[in-house]
Write a protein that binds this DNA or RNA. Structure first.
Lengths: 118, 118
DNA sequence: ATTGACCTTCACATCAATGTGACGGTTCAA
DNA sequence: TTGAACCGTCACATTGATGTGAAGGTCAAT
């Protein structure tokens, strides 16, 4: 599929799709005429990227995370560098911290709403 | 306390403390000579703001949320505009969506780590 | 009285994520 | 063959969160 269709499908502008490619979050083949060609799974990947961006992650962080999150299916994980593991642990802890802050604040909103409505 | 002390206490630069004031996230009185004077609780508030910013919220969203999150203690909630309630419900749902995305991805990292280490 | 450590405002710089639009090529249908 | 609807690159603009630093006021200690 070409970039316009992918943009339509995902709700992400062409400009941003090119940007994500530049940031190495997605890949695109090229047809003879130079047009980008995307596989269907790219749409899912773009949606995943949007979710993470909307959740406050940077493209840089996302770039680090995505390979691990998607390589899930492939069972061949023969060897992972210790630094990579440490990076992932740091990212995991960072996400956990974010989750905790957001959860606390969401619960505070909820209890405020409860008190007001009750 | 003055701005330098607050910055020291919270690890947030003077520049940003002024910025947060400009964005109406915190308030400061002024002493005769024009210096900002902060109450002690401001430090907690600043830490809360940092948490939310680090978790990916904008100052604009934080400005909307903070009054509700802190007015918690005061039991006098005589009347809340329906639009305010709706705004809070939207914010709550937004936070929940963020939390879900982050949780899914953290769990994916964790299971990757488990698989690699196992 | 001077110096150093504060403070003020203001303005300009930067970075990431995003928009907008110019200029030009490709393809397809009328 | 021409025009619409795509595509490409490139560059400049904007917004939000931040840094940096200039020019000047205040204050306390020397």
């Amino acid at each position: 599929m070409r970039i316009g269709e992918l943009a339509e499908l995902t709700g992400v502008s062409r400009r941003l799709l090119r940007y994500y490619e530049e940031q190495e979050l997605i890949k695109a083949c090229r047809t003879e005429n130079g047009y980008r060609a995307y596989s269907l799974e790219t749409a899912d990947r773009v949606r995943q990227i949007r979710g993470l961006l909307d959740a406050g992650l940077s493209t840089r962080a996302i770039k680090q995370l995505l390979p691990c999150l998607n390589g899930s299916k492939s069972i061949d994980i023969p060897w992972v560098a210790p630094e990579t593991m440490e990076m992932l642990e740091r990212e995991r802890d960072g996400l956990t911290a974010r989750i905790d802050v957001l959860t606390r604040n969401r619960d505070a909103i909820q209890s405020y709403l409860d008190r007001v409505a009750g």
